[in-house]
Amino acid sequence: MSPAVAPPRPDEEAIRDALRGVADPEIPAVSIVDLGMVERIEVGPDRIEVELLPTFVGCPAQELIRSTVIDALAPFGCPTVVGYSFRVPWTSDRITATGRANLTAAGFAPPAEPGDVRCPRCGSGVVVRDSYFGPTQCRSLWYCRDCRQPFEAFKPI
């Protein structure tokens, strides 16, 4: 009998690439990697561990994201454990440049201090905040006085 040869361990970068295919269900244009939710990936001898940071403590998408991550990593052939933690607080500064560009392209102003918010449609800075709170926990309601359209901005947090 020849000794069993262990299958090659998946590489962390390959896992991160696979996670680029997992989107926030409330903002499908941005992956959880570009949102800055992926804090740690650890490849153990018999499992992959992924530590995620919730954008908001009560974000209702957490369970859906967990199961989507498990499905996305299934091709690596070993079990995946997804944990949420507050070890590091998620902040909107963790959104990558790609994430910010994708937010704008999808019609959401990326997080910015109130004076720096731009209309994602026409780029105007002549905008007013209608409400601190929007249809999801992470968004607020704004109005562009130039193109006269309402829009949503990601809250700086």
Partner: peptide, 16 residues
């Protein structure tokens, strides 16, 4: 706007 705001605040608090 307040309907949305109070609902969002409630969701935050229940999450906490």
């Amino acid at each position: 706007e307040e309907d949305v705001a109070m609902s969002s605040i409630a969701q935050d608090e229940l999450g906490h």
